Computed example of a mutant assay.
Amino acid sequence: MPDDDLIIRPAQPEDEHELAALDRASRSTLSDVSPEPPAGAGVFDERHTPGQYLLAVLGGRIVGYVRQVPPTPLAANRHVRQIQGLAVDGAVRGRGVGRRLVEAACEAARAEGARRMTLRVLGWNAPARRLYESCGFVVEGSLAEEFLIDGSYVDDVLMARRLLG
């Protein structure tokens, strides 16, 4: 299926079931620190609303998502957005879907007046770090051994990209 048929669009409430299935299928200790949600759990709640998600749709099927939100409710950093979730279906990885999602999230944040996009990525997640770096993100800091995952201590790497001027 040609990737030029890829559509990036905002999530809708009716996308929840398919989005939750993609989220469960893409979970990995490479990228996830939170416990796996219970079987049948959705993704939307009072803190995770459809408006925070952009979806990648190919052939009528959701093949990826990115979630970007203000990192805090404080007015003092209203100019910042944070990517708090990115997943791409394994069947289409390596075809630019992740890049399109990251760029779409940055463009949406810029349209809302944001000046910076930030994110946190596990130090051992080399594929994600390469993707973010290729999209213009730079490492701004690291929290050494922040997480203990499967018996290994893993750094939490803080990355950011300027969106305006």
Results as ranks from 00 to 15, higher is better:
residue 22 L to R: 01
residue 24 R to D: 07
residue 24 R to W: 07
residue 27 R to C: 11
residue 27 R to T: 08
residue 31 S to Y: 05
residue 33 V to N: 12
residue 33 V to Q: 03
residue 33 V to R: 12
residue 33 V to K: 02
residue 34 S to N: 11
residue 34 S to T: 15
residue 34 S to I: 15
residue 35 P to D: 07
residue 37 P to D: 08
residue 37 P to N: 05
residue 37 P to L: 13
residue 38 P to L: 06
residue 38 P to I: 12
residue 40 G to V: 11
residue 42 G to Y: 12
residue 42 G to N: 11
residue 43 V to A: 01
residue 43 V to W: 00
residue 43 V to L: 15
residue 43 V to C: 14
residue 44 F to H: 04
residue 44 F to K: 08
residue 44 F to M: 10
residue 45 D to M: 12
residue 45 D to N: 15
residue 46 E to I: 15
residue 46 E to Q: 14
residue 47 R to N: 14
residue 48 H to L: 15
residue 49 T to P: 10
residue 49 T to W: 02
residue 50 P to S: 11
residue 50 P to T: 14
residue 51 G to W: 03
residue 51 G to F: 03
residue 52 Q to G: 09
residue 52 Q to A: 11
residue 53 Y to D: 02
residue 53 Y to F: 15
residue 53 Y to M: 05
residue 54 L to W: 02
residue 54 L to Y: 01
residue 55 L to T: 00
residue 56 A to N: 07
residue 56 A to H: 06
residue 58 L to G: 07
residue 60 G to C: 08
residue 60 G to P: 07
residue 60 G to N: 06
residue 61 R to D: 09
residue 61 R to S: 10
residue 64 G to P: 04
residue 64 G to E: 03
residue 64 G to R: 01
residue 65 Y to K: 04
residue 65 Y to A: 02
residue 66 V to D: 00
residue 67 R to N: 13
residue 67 R to C: 15
residue 67 R to Q: 10
residue 68 Q to T: 07
residue 69 V to R: 06
residue 69 V to L: 12
residue 69 V to I: 15
residue 70 P to N: 05
residue 70 P to G: 05
residue 70 P to R: 01
residue 71 P to L: 04
residue 71 P to S: 05
residue 72 T to E: 06
residue 72 T to V: 09
residue 72 T to G: 03
residue 73 P to I: 04
residue 74 L to A: 13
residue 74 L to S: 06
residue 75 A to S: 08
residue 76 A to D: 03
residue 77 N to A: 00
residue 77 N to K: 08
residue 77 N to C: 11
residue 78 R to S: 13
residue 79 H to G: 09
residue 79 H to V: 14
residue 79 H to A: 12
residue 80 V to W: 03
residue 80 V to I: 14
residue 81 R to G: 01
residue 81 R to L: 12
residue 81 R to P: 00
residue 82 Q to P: 01
residue 82 Q to Y: 03
residue 83 I to S: 04
residue 83 I to L: 06
residue 83 I to K: 04
residue 84 Q to E: 13
residue 84 Q to H: 05
residue 84 Q to F: 00
residue 87 A to R: 07
residue 88 V to D: 01
residue 89 D to Y: 05
residue 89 D to M: 10
residue 89 D to F: 10
residue 89 D to R: 01
residue 90 G to S: 14
residue 90 G to I: 12
residue 90 G to M: 07
residue 91 A to N: 05
residue 91 A to L: 13
residue 92 V to K: 02
residue 92 V to C: 13
residue 92 V to T: 13
residue 93 R to H: 01
residue 93 R to Y: 00
residue 93 R to M: 03
residue 93 R to I: 12
residue 95 R to D: 08
residue 96 G to T: 08
residue 97 V to K: 00
